[in-house]
Structures are given as C-alpha cells and as structure tokens.
Design a binder for these strands. Structure first.
Lengths: 338, 338
DNA sequence: AAAAATGTTGGCAGCGCTGCCATTCCGGGA
DNA sequence: TCCCGGAATGGCAGCGCTGCCAACATTTTT
C-alpha cells in the first residue's frame, strides 16, 4: 500500500480549463475569486477542479504573480531555540495570526548563533518570502545587508532595547531587569544574587541582568553573588546553580534567575534542602511560564506578553506603515516567593 | 532608515551571467556545483554573484527543476499544538535533521483538529513540498485522498498504534499506558485513578488510557476514579483536577496523569495540601519532561523519545525505501513519586 | 435603433530557473 | 599536420501560473 503512485503529471490549470470548457485565465480568476466571471463559468470550473482533484501550484503562482514585491505568501521565521518554552509561545502567537492572514510560516532555528542565523536568512530569502520575522536585534553585518537588499518587511521580535531594522515588537529586557531589582529592593532584600545561564548567547538575558544591576546600583547595592551555568536554561541547571550559590554565599537573601525554568529548579532546590521561601531565601524569575502559577507558592516573576508579541508581529507584516517599535510591556506577577 | 528600498528588480541569474561574461547555464551549473565548468568560469561567476548580491530564486528553481517528483526542498510539517512541550521537542529534532539535509520546514499547527489539518495539508501541498510530516494517524478521508494523490513521501510521527499511510515513526501509546499500569500494579497500588485532559482531541492520550485500563483489567482491577478537564493539559489543570479527584475519592492511592505537566500540577497539589508522595498518594506521569528530573522527588514517568522521533522522521524523508513503521520505544523513568 | 457602457472571456507573454541539445574548444593520437 | 573524443559552454524551450489586452457579449442610454 505505497503512497507513491505519481501517476505521471499532476493536474494543472490547463487540464481544468479543458475539462470545464473555458480558458485558463477564467479558471485562474474563478479559483482566486478575483476579476469578473459568469456564475455559470464559476460553477463549471469549481466542478471540474474538484473532479480532477486539482491542487494549485503556488510555486508557479508566486513566480508569475508579483515578481518583485511580496512574491509568495511565505513568511520566513527565525527563532533561536525551541527548547526554551518562550519561543514556542512566540511561534504560537505568530502562526496563529499568520494563517488567519493567509500566510505560511517557514521556520528556522538559529540556536542563538548569529552566523547560523545568517545562513538561515540567506536560505529563507531564496524563497522570496513576503516578509521575514527574526528574533532579537543582533545580526551579522552580512545579514543586515541582505535584509536591506531584500526590500521586504522585517519584524524583529521580543527585544526593544536598541535600534531595529524595520519593525520591532517586544518589550525592554533592560526594563524588565530593572523593575525586577526594584521589586526585590522594595521588599527589603539586600544580599541579592543572580543565577543565570549562558549569557554569551542569550543576549536578552544579558540585557535583563544589565538592567537589574543598574537598578541595584541606583539603590546603592551590587550583586551579592552570581552563579552562571554554561549550558542552556533548564530546571536542572537552575537547581544545581542555586545549590552551588548557596554553598558559596550562604547569607544570600534573594536570587534573581535568568528565566522561570531556572527559578523553578531553584525552588525545587529549596524544597529539597528545606530552605524556607521566601523566609530563608527569596526567588524571582522571568517570563511567568504557565507552570509557575500552579506552584504551591506561585513564583514571583515578570509576565512577558509572548503570545501577543507573536500575534502583533504577524499583524504588522502586511501593514505598509513606516518602521517603528511597538513596546508591549510586561507586568509584575507578584507571586509568593519574593 | 526604511528597509524598503526595492531598487526595482532583484538580481537574476541573467544579471550574474552578464557580469561574469558567461552564459546563464554556466552560472546555474557553477552555483549548484553540478555539471562541468572550467575553474576560471567558476571563479568569475562566484565573484560576480557576490558583487551583485545575487540571491537565487528557489521558487523558480523548484518550478523549473523537477516539475513532478520532489519539486522543492520544502517539507510540510503539521503538528497539533505548540502549547504542549512535547511538540516543540518533536519539531526540534525534526528541524535539526531537516536542515542538515538541506530542507526547509513549513510548519502548520492543527490545534488537534482533523478538519484544520485537512486545510493545512491542502495548503502545504500547493507548495509542492518534497515530503510531508504529520502527527498521528488520524486524518480525514479527504486528507488521505490528497496525500495519496500527491505522490510524495509522508511521515506520520509519534503514534504507531494503527496503520500508517507510508512511514510511521514513534512508539505505541497503548503500550506506554499498559506499561505504566503494570508498574503501578507491580508497586502494590490498587486504588488507581486517572487524571487527564481533553481526550476527544488528544487521541494519543486516549490510547494511553486505553492501554492503561487494559493492563488494569488484566490484573483484575478497574480505574478507581477519573477526573477529566475539558481544557488542554497544563500544570494548573492538573493541580485543580487532582484536588477535585481527592475530594471525590479520598482513598485513591495512585494517580496516572495524561501528561507530565498535569502530573507536575498534581505534585504541586500534594505539596500544597501536605499529602505525602508516594505515601499518601503516588503520582505517575508521561513523557519525562526535563523539568521533572529537577524535582525534589523526581517524577515517576515514561521517557518518550521525542527528539529521536523528529530526527528519524527527517532522516526517512529522502530514503526511497518501502513504507513501514519505526518503533523507537519508550523507557520507564522510575523517579520517586510512584 | 444605434451608440455607449459594462460584463465576460481567451490568448499570450513573461516570472527566473533548469534540462536538453547543439556547438565550440582543447589536447593527444594517427 | 590533421582528426577525434570529451570537456566546457550558450541558447532556448518549457515548468504552471498570472497580468494584460483585445475581442466579444450583454445591457443601458440616448
């Protein structure tokens, strides 16, 4: 029962035209519901197409349609990772809105590597996408050159801390870090440490930390300690890192995590070691992952509008408006751990 | 600083040919490193292409190249959801292997809806993909017809419980459920309940439950209770459901969850209510999400090879072999909650 | 009733690329 | 020196579709 029957050639618009007894142009018009045609022609074409099992060839359509401008209805998307739940969320908002608008997303994963992104962008551009959606503001010079030359709408998601190429949708990671520190300081914590993952790659986590330290400095404080893991963020890494940190700096009274999954790991470390949260040690995360709301003590964290960012990115794809930055903000999720 | 410069026409192969002082065919051969050409011609073409910033148009390439067979280098992918971490994992394995092989994935999200899948498949087929990767074995009749007519390789991921269309890569969800029940029964639990999410849509969770109940029956048992939430699986839903379940059937001694995130929610419920795990109540999940390994008591669950499935799916795309099922199995992750 | 306006329709030239084929170029053997 | 086989090359016909335009049909207006 192989599926490979490939009877020969696939049905083309010419076959439908012959079957329906009309011209090719009429078939084209009917199928796209564009231009004028008689009711009778419409019926016959639809009927013939169904009878023949016609599947339009968008490759040809896009090629013929509009050679320059928005060639196809494909939209290239580059995200850094699928392992960090933040990005599937982004993708979720994006694909949802994208296919409401009749677009198809072509997804590439850069693994936080600008050089990898460069290659992905080159590959995506060769499909003549209607637009490109990237993550973050940091790109190689060659990527930027190519993007400029492509003459299509570019959306950069998530990070508004810096100049964008065209449209930027996100929030200020710096401000998130800043607000997080203000919250901890306001709660009276003074010996505040940081637990994070590979900052060399995750530029946005680094920006949050910068904002965090800036706010500490404004309050006359500095990071009490810091523990970085080389790997990607995960609960296991957060757990190990917090344990290491507490061993080194036992008097730490609050910890800022680069990410909620790290923070969740930290929470587990506290549970395992019997450290009272937030009595013995307070925990603060970032992103407000769904899970954290179900914890016995909801995690104190910052809610970032990931779905909304994806959706907004998709919605601004077609808009012919001027370049600009759309800041969707963030919100304190008070929780009970800090 | 608009990016929209669209100087007019994009650079075509003809422009490169003129610039390099060779024919179009030579440019095409050089750029694809195929056919024979002199070293000198090769250099000049590459140079000219770089100078002009030439970006090949794969739309045209695919259209001209091989009209029938593997038209483009696009691969259509349909997954049911991005909210359930299982699918991003699948996607991760898939896109990784896909772009090693030079393919680009076009992703659609069906939201667990076969009718939505039908529309997505139709849309994807119109890009003349080299192959299609779907999730699960359940499709509408029309989808199946179209898939057959397309004459391309089809891979169905994750579920091996039933006949596939072409290539199937995954594990038996029924067997997972069965093994889970055997484990709980073997540990001496007798009043075993089930906590799950919307089974009407998540067919695979339903298959796991069926296998689970079958194993219970073999042991002379039946489900002690069950609690279903209508929404999608999540920690919050798991927590609420477990609390409801314990209220209704306080003597339950073990709970099988449809998913690890549900189980994690259940664990949080136990922590919150002070129910000893597994003394008062044992918990068993499914999928072995990363997070669960960091818990103070690692969750007892079944490790499913999600990344490997994605990778295997991509690898079997090109293989011209016969249809068949590849069962990647699963593995008990003993943990400490059951 | 003729003219003008409007509604339908089919033919055909591309879109940018690749496959095919005929042609040219080159070095080595007769 | 001439001829021959293979490497290198360019021209051109499509791939399937859409945009444009001219042709024709049908109404409406005067």
């Amino acid at each position: 029962m192989t599926i490979h029957q490939t009877p020969g050639r696939l049905v083309t618009i010419a076959d439908v035209a012959r079957e329906a007894g009309v011209g090719e142009s009429t078939v084209s018009r009917v199928l796209r519901g564009q231009g004028s045609f008689s009711k009778r022609a419409g019926e016959r074409v639809l009927e013939a197409a169904a009878r023949l099992g016609y599947v339009p060839n968008r490759l040809a359509g896009a090629l013929a349609g509009n050679a320059d401008s928005a060639g196809s209805q494909l939209v290239g998307v580059v995200i850094p990772s699928l392992a960090n739940i933040v990005f599937p969320d982004l993708l979720r908002g994006l694909t949802g809105a994208l296919d409401e608008a009749g677009f198809q997303g072509v997804v590439g994963v850069s693994d936080y590597d600008p050089v990898r992104e460069e290659a992905l962008v080159a590959g995506l551009l060769s499909w003549r996408p209607a637009a490109l959606v990237l993550t973050g503001l940091e790109h190689t010079a060659l990527t930027v050159t190519r993007l400029r030359a492509a003459g299509i709408r570019i959306v950069e998601m998530i990070d508004t801390d810096g100049p964008g190429l065209d449209i930027v949708v996100g929030f200020s990671n710096r401000a998130v870090g800043h607000a997080s520190a203000r919250h901890l300081v306001g709660r009276g914590y003074r010996r505040i440490a940081y637990v994070g993952h590979d900052l060399g790659r995750d530029v946005r986590a680094a920006k949050r930390l910068a904002g965090f330290e800036a706010a500490l400095a404004e309050a006359g404080l500095a990071l009490h300690a810091r523990e970085l893991v080389a790997e990607r963020s995960s609960a296991a890494a957060g757990r190990a890192a917090l344990e290491a940190l507490v061993a080194r700096a036992p008097d730490t009274d609050a910890v800022y995590f680069s990410n909620d999954d790290m923070a969740l790991g930290g929470y587990f470390a506290c549970l395992g070691s019997g450290w009272a949260v937030p009595g013995r040690i307070a925990l603060f995360g970032c992103h407000a992952l769904d899970i954290t709301a179900a914890m016995p003590q909801p995690l104190s964290t910052m809610r970032t509008p990931r779905l909304a960012i994806g959706r907004a990115a998709a919605e601004h794809l077609r808009a012919g408006g001027p370049p600009g930055t759309i800041d969707l903000g963030f919100e304190l999720s008070e929780g009970a751990t800090a």
